[in-house]
């Protein structure tokens, strides 16, 4: 027993060493995925974020077709970078809906005029309540929602050109 006890510290140390090494090889991931993937879209009804464009309710998203719901903001720099990809998706016939976080109508109108407007509707979320209800932790994030209103996939960060095929195929799967 005493023999075992003597070697216990070394054994414990080796375990911790393993933890450190594995931490170095695969550091803590920095993204926090939503736990709602695979679950129904939470219910919400957002007022229009810009004049002349409808707002967004969760009921509209369960109309039998898959959609993209893009969580974005005019003050968000990566959102500018993903704008061309969203336009490309919209031109390919994908229904793109927007949720604008903590945004002013005039800022948003300017953003859409400058970067293009792929959105069928944009709901304004002035205090992030829908963003939090979605389990989204930042902008931009994009949710793929199937025809029954179930969230099928969450894309965290800007949609880069190389991400487009993956999103198209996920939309195909959601059909």
């Amino acid at each position: 027993m005493r023999k075992l006890l003597i070697w216990l510290p070394l054994a414990l140390f080796l375990i911790f060493l393993g933890v450190f090494a594995s931490g170095l090889i695969s550091p803590e991931s920095k993204t926090i995925p939503s736990k709602l993937v695979g679950k129904p879209m939470p219910g919400f009804a957002l007022a229009p974020a810009v004049p002349g464009k409808p707002g967004l309710t969760s009921a509209e998203l369960a109309n039998g077709r898959p959609h993209l719901v893009n969580v974005f903001a005019s003050w968000c720099v990566p959102c500018i970078a993903e704008a061309p990809q969203l336009r490309q998706l919209a031109e390919a016939g994908v229904p793109v809906y927007g949720i604008a976080i903590r945004d002013r109508p005039e800022d948003l109108a300017r953003f859409l005029a400058r970067n293009g407007d792929p959105f069928r509707a944009i709901g304004g979320d002035p205090n992030s309540s829908v963003q939090i209800a979605l389990g989204s932790s930042g902008v931009p994030e994009t949710f793929i929602v199937d025809g029954k209103g179930i969230i099928r996939k969450q894309h965290i960060g800007a949609i880069n050109p190389e991400d487009v095929p993956g999103i198209m195929s996920a939309l195909g799967d959601a059909r």
Binding site: R2, P9, L10, L14, L17, A21, L24
Partner: peptide
């Protein structure tokens, strides 16, 4: 981490051998 492994691992091994 490498230094930690050498120094502390070595010292604990020495401890195991000598402490008896």
């Amino acid at each position: 981490l490498a230094l930690l492994a050498i120094y502390i691992g070595g010292a604990l091994a020495l401890f195991g051998l000598r402490v008896g």
